[in-house]
Design a binder for these strands. Structure first.
Lengths: 108, 108
DNA sequence: GCGACCTGTAAGCGGTAACTTACGTGTTCG
DNA sequence: CGAACACGTAAGTTACCGCTTACAGGTCGC
């Protein structure tokens, strides 16, 4: 339920608002799980589960720091996902040519 | 279930692969519902429901053509949604500064 | 006008993601 | 060595999204 293949679907990965909030928070600097959960309306385990998804996607890396665990962002990987989404935009908007009403009449 | 407020969540709107496929197809030119459903692995009513969502979001406009109904893309609106997603990227990647391992030691 | 067409909508179902609670693991400090 | 802390994971629930199968509403040809 939470472990399915996200790595191939950047949209599903970033479609969740909680995960985007985590990413934005981590963009301000490395953070622990408890710190992340403090500013969010969900429980700490929920944050941990989201971090697992982001970690498996390579967006986030974790490092043990004593009994804490510091999470940080992988900017390069994140940028790779952005490019993956940009491919859709270039496909969708790139092909788009200004259609006049005259052109549309060809269909009917 | 299908009518919820998508207009405020561009991610949910574009998160669905079928909707993105419809957008890409429409970017090649105006199309009818049957034509769209022909190239997709889902039924025609399903396409119609997706079109309703896209229409309420303003991305798509429909026009009666006899007993057909021609759908076309609103490039400006679509570009507006792209900018909405770009805001997340500028927030996430914009704040991102190269973190060295030394900086991360401040946390522990 | 009647039947064939294209389409939108209603009702309902199945799958799955996201969340919570409960528990297990490893680390630090007394 | 034992208690407290930070975290990950398991199990289970809930909610919602997307889909299909019907059915209703207009539009064109005979």
């Amino acid at each position: 339920m939470f472990v399915t293949a996200y790595q191939s679907d950047a949209w599903a990965l970033l479609g969740d608002a909680s995960r985007r909030a985590i990413i934005e928070q981590l963009s301000l600097g490395p953070c622990t799980v408890a710190d992340l959960a403090e500013d969010m309306p969900i429980s700490r385990p929920a944050v941990s589960q989201h971090l697992k998804v982001l970690r498996e996607a390579g967006i986030v890396r974790d490092e043990p720091r004593g009994r804490h665990r510091v999470y940080s962002l992988d900017g390069a990987r994140l940028d790779r996902y952005r490019r993956e989404l940009d491919q859709f935009w270039s496909d969708a908007l790139g092909n788009l040519t200004p259609r006049t009403d005259e052109e549309q009449k060809e269909i009917g």
